[in-house]
Design a protein around this nucleic acid. Structure first.
Length: 582
RNA sequence: GCGCCCGUAGCUCAGCCGGAUAGAGCGUCUGCCUCCGGAGCAGAAGGUCAGAGGUUCGAAUCCUCUCGGGCGUACCA
């Protein structure tokens, strides 16, 4: 495996460094992939880094270092010193063939590692409250969280996916009241209102660019305008007729809405191949006394005080410019308090790491949670927060405006419907989370080489097609040939080097929690394959070469398929040709 | 006002725990189908890495300031 050469080179460097005076304690030489192929396979900048400490020119240090290096010629072919002081290593060919053979042997497991063995991670993501369908913004959250979870599983962690939600509180009351108002409207329209009941409407004008809407008089001013509310109301009319009008209780309306909306959320997630292990209801923290307990502990810590009927956390003493309300004067907790209790619960459940996927709007709130946890002596270092920036949808170069309140938001379902789950998943992770994501619908829908998803899938499908053809002419495509050493064309070697990087790329991406690294890498694999494919014939070559090239193609298929699998994207065996007719 | 994120090629973005002539895709231009899937390949043009200082042998990368964009800054969620 490639990892073993790296380890060997690393150890050789460390051993050689021991013969030098003045190397700082704890100095570890680093190895990286050089920027350009002509610099070899592996590079160390340690001579540059040591120049200051040793007070010698980096070039001289590098040369002296190389003179002391003892390297296995079966692994490393050459190492050279290059200005301004890099040491560049080139793998031995035999090592590349061995690494390729490892890939063929491992097949669908190629890329898996045991880095996270015996360690558990909880990834909390989506966590949208059941007040409406998932939006495009939730989509980025969902795909980021699921892909990070996949990467961690591939690197050996035991992963749990959790969805945290809240079905109590003001938001849900507004939802219930919205449903109730539509329920009345529905009864009126069907002529089912009991005799003597009045039905009135009002014009709802919430300003800020919203069109005024005609709604039932009982509709809350900040109610939910989406069409799904009417669907819930319709269900209630079918189930109960006008009987729910007798009770002022919103619970039946909330419950029905929650049931239907959650069903739709689960359906949407399923379309993206996402399955949660647990749904954690915030209400349980009220029921089991966790909130009281947290309040009590904070009280003991002395960071709690009361002012104007509300309960405050003295965050101004915890590196923040102001204090934070935990319980409103109404007696109702703000979201901070259950969030604190929830995170305390998560850490107490014993996970080695708890990863939260949050939108940019949480940027100011999560530090409060960490502050409180530290006061509570909870190991807050186990909590890792990934903040992603918002998504902009564009069509024909124009931004599509989204607003939840106006119900003009684009639902995640609509997006999946339009571009398909594979493209949806890929686009959401192809940029680093910390950047705004522009989702170009025109590009996403295009089934051509412009679309990076199709480019990857096409390469995979093409290899499948070649394999089928090779079987047809009697070429053995099963076991790995002993003739891999026949692969010596530059395009072949470049492809092998690319393939063999997969385990490390995946590991690094997992450690950094950055799925986009994988998308960049897979693109480069597909490119290397295309080059190879155009320069080297496979099937019509003499048998030993054909066999070796076949094996190389199969290894490429393995890396593409495994990489796409980590991304949760299908690797089709065939793709329909583009329709050429205008 | 304050806090966080972000300004890299015409567009969308990699690179960012300092290092080798700043990379990719798209778009533009030029070539390549008697040949395993042309949804492809090869090549070209295109950048004072927002600006100004600083640290350093060396800065897109670290620090400070300025300008520009986003998100927050609620007894909203």
């Amino acid at each position: 495996m490639v990892m073993t050469v790296e380890v060997a080179v690393q150890e050789a460097l460390e051993a050689a460094l021991k013969t030098f005076d003045g190397v700082p304690a704890g100095f570890v030489p680093e190895l990286e992939k050089p920027r350009a192929a002509r610099f070899g396979d592996l590079s160390s900048n340690c001579a540059l880094k040591l120049a200051r400490h040793l007070r010698r020119p980096p070039l001289a240090i590098a040369q002296a270092l190389v003179a002391e290096l003892v390297l296995d010629p079966l692994l490393v072919d050459s190492c050279e010193v290059v200005r301004p002081g890099f040491i560049n290593f080139r793998f031995a060919r035999g090592h590349l063939y061995q690494a390729l053979a490892d890939c063929l042997d491992a097949g669908p497991c190629y890329g898996r590692s045991t880095e996270g063995r015996d360690r558990t991670v909880l990834v909390e993501f989506v966590s949208a409250n059941p007040t409406g369908p998932l939006t495009v913004g939730h989509g980025r959250n969902a795909v980021l969280g699921d892909t990070i979870a996949n990467m961690l599983e591939w690197t050996g962690y035991t992963v749990a996916r959790e969805y945290y939600y809240n079905d109590a509180g003001r938001q849900m009351r507004v939802l219930g009241a919205s449903v109730r108002a539509r329920y009345e409207q529905m009864l009126f329209q069907k002529g089912l209102l009991p005799p003597g009941m009045q039905y009135a409407t009002k014009l709802l004008d919430r300003g800020s660019g919203e069109e005024p809407r005609l709604v039932p008089a009982s509709f809350p001013d900040d109610g939910y305008l989406g069409a799904y509310i009417a669907e819930v109301a319709l269900r209630l009319v079918d189930k109960w007729g006008a009987r729910l009008l007798r009770t002022p209780d919103l619970r039946p309306f909330i419950d029905e809405a929650e049931t239907l909306i959650f069903a739709s959320i689960r359906r949407t997630l399923k379309r993206l191949g996402i399955r949660m292990d647990t749904f954690f209801n915030e209400r349980s923290l009220y029921d089991n006394g966790a909130l009281e307990e947290v309040l009590g502990l904070l009280e003991e810590s002395g960071y709690l005080y009361r002012k104007e009927g509300a309960t405050w956390l003295r965050t101004s003493a915890l590196d923040k410019d102001q204090d934070t309300v935990l319980v409103k004067s109404s007696g109702e907790p703000t979201y901070r308090l259950p969030d604190i209790a929830y995170h305390r619960d998560k850490v107490a459940r014993g996970y080695d790491a708890c990863i939260d996927i949050f939108g940019a709007d949480h940027i100011a709130t999560y530090p409060d949670i960490l502050r409180a946890l530290r006061v509570l002596n909870v190991d807050a270092d186990r909590i890792e927060v990934i903040i992603y920036q918002f998504v902009t949808l564009t069509r024909a170069g124009q931004e599509i405006k989204m607003s939840t309140r106006r119900a003009t938001f684009v639902t995640l379902d609509a997006l999946i419907q339009e571009v398909g789950p594979d493209v949806t998943r890929f686009f959401f992770v192809m940029r680093s989370a910390g950047r705004h994501l522009e989702f170009d619908l025109d590009l996403a829908k295009e089934a051509s080489d412009k679309n990076p998803v199709f480019y990857l899938q096409y390469a995979h499908a093409r290899i499948c097609s070649i394999v089928a053809k090779a079987r047809g002419v009697g070429l053995v495509t099963g076991s790995r040939p002993s003739s891999l050493a026949l692969l010596s064309h530059p395009a072949e070697l470049a492809l092998i080097r690319s393939l063999v990087r997969f385990p490390k790329v995946l590991l690094k991406a997992a450690q950094a929690r950055e799925p986009h690294r994988l998308t960049v890498y897979l693109r480069s694999v597909a490119e290397a394959f295309s080059r190879f494919y155009h320069e080297c014939r496979i099937i019509k070559e003499p048998s030993p070469i054909a066999g070796a090239r076949m094996a190389l193609a199969i290894a490429t298929r393995t890396v593409l398929a495994n990489g796409l699998s980590v991304l949760g994207i299908s690797a089709p065996e065939r793709m329909d040709r583009r329709d050429e007719t205008p």
